[in-house]
Amino acid sequence: AEIMKKTDFDKVASEYTKIGTISTTGEMSPLDAREDLIKKADEKGADVVVLTSGQTENKIHGTADIYKKK
């Protein structure tokens, strides 16, 4: 799966169907969080990951919607 910015995804959204939401939390780098989200998306058969939230304090927390091409 590839990560797309919401603004970029909005241009092609009609080509995809939302298949779920994924999240990651833990003591990790932003890059590790990104890789974890991609891994989870791949496991669910998603083609595209669109980040919906991200937070960093002591731990990273990120959520994303996942989509499959129609």
Results as ranks from 00 to 15, higher is better:
residue 60 I to P: 09
residue 48 V to R: 01
residue 8 D to V: 05
residue 53 S to P: 09
residue 5 K to Y: 14
residue 49 V to G: 02
residue 14 S to H: 15
residue 55 Q to I: 14
residue 59 K to S: 15
residue 9 F to A: 01
residue 5 K to G: 09
residue 52 T to S: 11
residue 25 T to L: 09
residue 50 V to S: 01
residue 3 I to Y: 05
residue 40 K to Q: 14
residue 38 I to F: 03
residue 55 Q to T: 11
residue 46 A to V: 02
residue 44 K to G: 04
residue 37 L to Y: 04
residue 24 T to A: 07
residue 23 S to W: 12
residue 38 I to M: 08
residue 57 E to F: 07
residue 58 N to A: 12
residue 31 L to M: 11
residue 42 D to H: 14
residue 55 Q to S: 12
residue 61 H to Y: 14
residue 26 G to T: 14
residue 7 T to C: 13
residue 65 D to N: 04
residue 52 T to R: 14
residue 58 N to T: 12
residue 31 L to G: 10
residue 54 G to T: 12
residue 43 E to I: 07
residue 15 E to H: 11
residue 44 K to P: 00
residue 48 V to L: 09
residue 12 V to H: 04
residue 66 I to A: 02
residue 70 K to Y: 05
residue 67 Y to L: 03
residue 12 V to W: 04
residue 27 E to M: 13
residue 35 E to Y: 09
residue 6 K to V: 06
residue 2 E to A: 13
residue 55 Q to C: 14
residue 58 N to F: 09
residue 34 R to H: 08
residue 5 K to R: 12
residue 64 A to R: 02
residue 37 L to C: 03
residue 12 V to G: 01
residue 33 A to C: 11
residue 11 K to G: 04
residue 17 T to R: 10
residue 36 D to R: 06
residue 51 L to S: 02
residue 69 K to I: 04
residue 4 M to N: 01
residue 29 S to F: 06
residue 17 T to D: 11
residue 63 T to S: 08
residue 14 S to N: 10
residue 38 I to D: 01
residue 46 A to D: 02
residue 68 K to N: 04
residue 40 K to F: 04
residue 12 V to D: 02
residue 64 A to H: 09
residue 37 L to R: 00
residue 39 K to Q: 09
residue 28 M to G: 09
residue 66 I to Q: 00
residue 49 V to C: 04
residue 5 K to E: 15
residue 53 S to A: 10
residue 52 T to Y: 06
residue 13 A to M: 07
residue 60 I to R: 08
residue 68 K to C: 07
residue 59 K to V: 13
residue 29 S to G: 09
residue 34 R to K: 10
residue 68 K to E: 06
residue 50 V to T: 01
residue 47 D to S: 06
residue 24 T to G: 04
residue 17 T to A: 06
residue 54 G to P: 11
residue 55 Q to K: 08
residue 66 I to W: 00
residue 37 L to H: 02
residue 37 L to A: 01
residue 44 K to T: 04
residue 34 R to T: 09
residue 49 V to E: 01
residue 58 N to Q: 10
residue 17 T to S: 10
residue 29 S to Q: 05
residue 40 K to G: 01
residue 4 M to K: 02
residue 57 E to M: 12
residue 23 S to C: 15
residue 20 G to V: 02
residue 21 T to A: 07
residue 42 D to M: 15
residue 33 A to K: 06
residue 29 S to K: 08
residue 13 A to I: 08
residue 43 E to W: 08
residue 54 G to S: 12
residue 41 A to I: 00
residue 21 T to F: 07
residue 48 V to W: 00
residue 56 T to M: 12
residue 4 M to G: 01
residue 37 L to F: 05
residue 13 A to L: 05
residue 33 A to W: 14
residue 53 S to R: 06
residue 35 E to F: 09
residue 11 K to M: 09
residue 19 I to W: 03
residue 14 S to G: 12
residue 47 D to W: 04
residue 18 K to A: 06
residue 45 G to L: 04
residue 36 D to L: 07
residue 23 S to K: 10
residue 51 L to H: 03
residue 23 S to E: 13
residue 58 N to S: 12
residue 62 G to V: 15
residue 54 G to I: 14
residue 24 T to Q: 06
residue 34 R to I: 15
residue 5 K to N: 14
residue 7 T to D: 12
residue 70 K to I: 12
residue 23 S to D: 08
residue 63 T to F: 09
residue 2 E to K: 15
residue 61 H to D: 12
residue 49 V to S: 01
residue 41 A to N: 00
residue 32 D to H: 09
residue 5 K to Q: 13
residue 25 T to E: 12
residue 60 I to Q: 13
residue 11 K to C: 10
residue 34 R to L: 15
residue 34 R to A: 10
residue 13 A to Y: 07
residue 49 V to L: 14
residue 32 D to V: 07
residue 56 T to V: 11
residue 30 P to Y: 14
residue 6 K to F: 07
residue 24 T to I: 15
residue 10 D to I: 10
residue 61 H to C: 13
residue 69 K to M: 04
residue 9 F to T: 02
residue 10 D to A: 08
residue 40 K to I: 11
residue 36 D to Q: 11
residue 29 S to Y: 09
residue 9 F to S: 01
residue 50 V to L: 04
residue 25 T to C: 15
residue 64 A to Q: 04
residue 51 L to G: 02
residue 3 I to W: 11
residue 22 I to T: 01
residue 41 A to C: 02
residue 18 K to L: 12
residue 22 I to K: 01
residue 48 V to K: 03
residue 16 Y to L: 03
residue 10 D to H: 05
residue 35 E to T: 10
residue 18 K to V: 03
residue 63 T to V: 08
residue 70 K to R: 09
residue 19 I to H: 01
residue 2 E to Q: 15
residue 28 M to R: 06
residue 46 A to S: 03
residue 53 S to F: 14
residue 14 S to V: 09
residue 22 I to D: 03
residue 30 P to L: 13
residue 10 D to P: 00
residue 39 K to A: 08
residue 69 K to G: 03
residue 57 E to K: 09
residue 1 A to E: 01
residue 42 D to K: 12
residue 61 H to M: 14
residue 8 D to N: 03
residue 51 L to V: 08
residue 13 A to H: 07
residue 15 E to G: 09
residue 38 I to S: 03
residue 43 E to K: 09
residue 6 K to P: 09
residue 35 E to H: 13
residue 11 K to A: 06
residue 42 D to Q: 14
residue 46 A to N: 00
residue 60 I to L: 12
residue 44 K to M: 15
residue 30 P to T: 12
residue 2 E to V: 15
residue 29 S to A: 09
residue 37 L to K: 00
residue 15 E to D: 11
